[in-house]
Design a binder for these strands. Sequence first.
DNA 1: ATTTAATACGGACTTTTGGG
DNA 2: CCCAAAAGTCCGTATTAAAT
Length: 372
Amino acid sequence: MNHLRRVIHQLGLLQIDYVNVLVPAQYQVPFSRLGAYDRAQLDELVYRRREFTEHWAHEASIVPVDAWPLFRYRRLAHRVRPRGFERALRREPGYSRQVLARIRAQGALTAAELPSPTTGERRLPGSWYGTIPRAMAEWHFGRGRLAIADRRPDFRRVFDLSERVLSEDIRSRRVPTFAAHRALLLQAARAHGVATTGDLADYFRMPVTMVKPRLQELVDAGELHPIRVHGWTEPAYLHPEARRPRRLHATALLSPFDPVVWHRPRAARLFDFEYRLEIFLPAPKRRWGYYVLPFLLNDRLTARVDLKADRAGRRLRVQAAYLEPDTDGAQVSDALARELGTMAGWLGLESVSVGRRGPFARELAAAVRAQR
DNA sequence: ATTTAATACGGACTTTTGGG
DNA sequence: CCCAAAAGTCCGTATTAAAT
């Protein structure tokens, strides 16, 4: 639990995607760079002790409760406007308050348990939200009136009034806007070590124009160092606590939403790794596959694999495998095969099977066989 | 000072599936 | 039926920077 706590504080956030390991895969491969950990630990820290809370940060995330006052800029700007939602609200102006009143009276509820508008449809076809009550809950959550009190075993959120989730101390704490922005940027810089303006802005999804003057203030105050990095065209910022290790030892299959790669221009700049998420592409247009995970080995992204957890067959399927250019395949296939075995283990799968797609598949398959 | 170019941003749209 | 989750592309518009 201390490890989990430390990781979230270090990064300033834990993207919900990390936690997807707990969900029987909306995405076919649940994942976590944290490796195997107990769902109970997270529940304890977030929903029982309330040391952390859910908030839109980079995307849907868990953040330290102390950061809640810093995200006011995001709550004020939060928009939920899927097709038909605003029309439904105009038709029934009291619905927003009605949802809050229901939760106030009955206690925490999931979106499915919220009342429908009395006029018109419950469904919101063609939107990610699916239903009007779900979109309404998301709207209130984004604005800060509702907070996530709990998660059901299937990971659906339980919404409650934020005053019943967060302390009065936290909710009433006012941080001047610019100071809040600086605090978040400094947190982003700490997580990055060295970063461009775009990198830092993207960490908590701030507009670049909002970020630039704040970065200058941090430089003037000596809290960030402006530097140039060899091979980077843009100016960069160095966090004073950033350390460059002589050697880097790391072995990990990264989520597409891992901070190491979530900002694609940075991944390209640091690792010369061209990466794009292809879950939204029609199947025939995909170059690598539906759900492709980069493989980090020490200080390089060395390969990528399209994974799927075949729960019925109790095996982790590697649907396609690709080695990055100028990479020692033998070394990578060995380490990757081990990592796949580990992942299968914490997913509760019995074996790893490698398909034939991708030029690295044959070599990887051999390495996986060799480890059995 | 005015026009043009560059950049940023917001919104709409795309995909998938297990389990309650 | 309902819920979990989200990057990139395109396009129109707004703001800023550069050029004349």
